[in-house]
């Protein structure tokens, strides 16, 4: 029986992986590395797992992923590099744009220097903590300004090094396209944008494959060294824009998602 190591935090363990663990335990030995309880010591680790799966993105989780990659040949899904890039919104915007994937215009401005975009959304720069997108919407003189509460909280009021905001040009789109990439498999769905209906699952429905999005999905995952991701796209004037990429997607929203991910991990596991 293969052995799968799950590197996770208490939040994800409590709320996100019940079905997944139940299924995985019927197919493999499972060991849990819980961020809040695990002591990482770089000289005293001995792994016998066939694969590791990251289901969190905290500092210890990333460090452990890096250690396993450096010291062993055990596959880590997702990689340290991929996870690090995914949580760094500005960096992944730079790399994705460089790779030719259309993303909305973006800039990093110090507090006090406003964006030059007519309509914009302020997003968090480091997407590492477990909390939801909380939009704050202002409409003034025909201008739309949206801010994610997390981005405003992220600004350190006492440390000028962190007095920056990430501005993304606002893309008006009828739907938000949610794409899951799991290895070579790509799953497509769409929903009303969260600003229209905050209950995203109420309007989410599976859709037929969109070849253009499939290509973008493959390319983005390759550029960022991710093997499992969810990607959000908006569409304006027949052009798709990648607005978010997540390295620890909630696969419970995908039909049989827990089984698909578990089977993918078992297939990718070292023999």
């Amino acid at each position: 029986m293969k052995k799968v190591g799950i590197i996770i935090d208490k939040y994800h363990l409590k709320y996100k992986v019940t079905e997944f663990l139940k299924y995985l335990r019927s197919k493999a030995d499972v060991s849990l590395y819980i961020e809040e309880e695990f002591l990482l010591n770089d000289k005293k680790l001995d792994f016998d797992e066939n694969i590791f799966f990251l289901k969190a993105k905290g500092d210890l989780v990333l460090a452990l992923a890096k250690l396993i990659e450096e010291e062993t040949s055990i596959p880590v899904i997702n990689s340290y590099k991929g996870s690090w890039l995914a949580i760094n919104r500005f960096l992944n915007s730079v790399y994705l744009q460089k790779a030719g994937i259309p993303i909305p215009d973006f800039s990093l401005n110090p507090i006090g220097i406003p964006s030059t975009y007519h309509d914009y959304i302020i997003k968090n720069i480091i997407d590492q903590k477990n909390y939801k997108f909380i939009p704050i919407v202002h409409k003034e003189n025909g201008q739309l300004k949206v801010a994610d509460q997390r981005a405003l909280d992220e600004v350190d009021k006492t440390d000028p090094r962190y007095n920056y905001l990430y501005y993304q040009k606002f893309i008006k789109s009828k739907f938000e396209y949610k794409i899951y990439g799991i290895g070579e498999e790509v799953y497509f769905s769409k929903q009303l944008p969260i600003l229209v209906n905050p209950n995203k699952m109420e309007t989410r429905k599976e859709i037929e494959e969109i070849p253009e999005l499939k290509e973008y999905c493959y390319k983005a995952m390759e550029v960022m060294n991710l093997e499992l991701a969810s990607l959000d796209f908006l569409k304006s004037k027949d052009q798709f824009y990648l607005t978010d990429i997540n390295c620890t997607p909630n696969f419970n929203y995908l039909k049989n998602g827990h089984q698909i991910v578990a089977n993918f991990l078992l297939k990718r596991a070292k023999t």
């Binding site: 961020e35 809040e36 309880e37 695990f38 002591l39 990482l40 010591n41 770089d42 000289k43 500092d59 210890l60 460090a63 452990l64």
Partner: peptide, 15 residues
């Protein structure tokens, strides 16, 4: 040097 990472509680309990 050897490194250690953990929460405050983990370090206190396990070091």
């Amino acid at each position: 040097p050897e490194i250690y990472l953990g929460t405050q509680e983990t370090l206190k309990n396990q070091l």
